[in-house]
């Protein structure tokens, strides 16, 4: 069992203050439009964790794989050209109030960027960032992390995990990094009583029944996709509904494909940048010869779901590529989203 503590809600701002002293804090923040986004904050009053805030529009992957990131710069010098790596800001960061589904997605990306050849741009930022996860007791209508085994309560992956017990938080310590944050202010954190443990258990149990609308039954779909037994009509139909806008990939916390370009950014030279890309764009696979192996939209929709769900990828990534955050449900204009596609394939 993880090391556990109690933090009273009246002390939460003090804890945020401690975090602010320790590191740069990134937390859920309400924009003037009423949207929830993750943003660097400077005071506890900016943090919205208390009223069952909805999932951020853009997932926190943006703090590890930014939508646009400079990889290196180069310019002309006396001796010719010189590349200068542009490594990330290495200051310590805390993502405060991250949701369990998003933590699971970051674990997924960790494995990917670490596998075979290490991607230092991602890993450096990751290494310097602590994740303080807040469990969800009031899932949104679009949430289905319960079907993907990536929430609403985690057993590992977080540095600290907070579970709301009405007037207090049940705090679980997942790593030494998390432990350190608590140690700084021992008197804020109280010992856990038997009653606390019991209430925690009750909340964990009762939350499971609160998932309603969005559901995805994966196993049959995974089998069909992996064995190439999906009816062609399914892809035809989905392809007709897709606008190739790429929104589904951008908002998906486990999608990580990127494009690379060299741009003239300043008087002394060029920047090599990487930007989010999407396998739903026609140009994603266009080859120098003009040949395009995924010319049609249906082929690209098929590709996206094959990557997310096929057994071949599950084996490679240790899990399927969906954490049930529901963002694709909110984003896609064509109503192509994980639960819908899983269901269509399952029934086909």
């Amino acid at each position: 069992m993880n090391n556990v503590k109690i933090l009273f809600k009246e002390d939460i701002n003090k804890f945020v203050q401690i975090c602010l002293k320790e590191a740069k804090v990134i937390a859920p923040f309400k924009t003037t439009y009423g949207d929830t986004i993750f943003s660097p904050v400077t005071s506890p009053s900016e943090v919205v964790i208390d009223h069952g805030y909805e999932n951020s529009i853009i997932p926190p992957k943006e703090f590890f794989l930014p939508q646009e990131e400079t990889m290196l710069t180069y310019g002309r010098y006396k001796e010719g050209y010189k590349f200068k790596p542009s490594l990330a800001d290495e200051s310590k960061r805390i993502i405060f109030g991250i949701r369990p589904c998003d933590v699971s997605a970051i674990l997924f990306l960790d494995r990917f960027f670490r596998s075979d050849i290490e991607d230092i741009y991602y890993l450096k930022k990751r290494e310097n960032t602590a994740l303080i996860s807040f469990c969800c007791h009031e899932p949104q209508e679009t949430c289905f992390c319960i079907c993907t085994d990536s929430g609403p309560f985690l057993t590992y992956g977080f540095d600290l995990q907070f579970i709301d017990l009405e007037d207090r938080y049940f705090v679980e310590i997942g790593t030494p990094k998390g432990e350190k944050l608590i140690k700084f202010n021992k008197n804020l954190f109280k010992d856990v009583s038997v009653a606390d443990e019991k209430l925690r258990q009750e909340i964990v149990e009762s939350t499971k029944n609160k998932f309603k609308s969005a559901r995805a039954y994966f196993s049959k779909t995974i089998r069909k996709l992996s064995e190439g037994k999906v009816d062609r009509n399914v892809w035809d139909e989905l392809g007709q509904r897709c606008f190739s806008c790429g929104g589904c990939s951008y908002v998906c916390p486990t999608c990580s494909c990127f494009d690379v370009a060299d741009l003239l950014r300043s008087r002394d030279g060029y920047s090599r940048i990487r930007t989010w890309d999407s396998c739903m764009f026609a140009g994603f696979t266009k080859e120098a010869s003009g040949h395009n192996p995924r010319l049609e939209k249906k082929d690209r929709v098929c590709r996206r779901y094959y990557h997310k769900l096929s057994y071949q990828y599950v084996e490679k990534n240790e899990t399927h590529g969906c954490v049930g955050c529901g963002r694709c449900i909110v984003t896609c204009l064509g109503n192509i989203n994980m639960p819908v596609v899983v269901e269509k394939i399952r029934r086909s």
Binding site: F112, C257, V260, D277, C279, S289, Y306, Q312, Y313
Partner: peptide, 24 residues
């Protein structure tokens, strides 16, 4: 086999074909 490639090291996703990366 040829595919459109960007990173060459299995990260950008462009060259994926099935569950393999042509570059790796």
């Amino acid at each position: 086999l040829e595919r459109h490639m960007k990173c060459g090291v299995g990260k950008c996703g462009h060259c994926a074909i099935g569950y393999k990366y042509i570059c790796m």
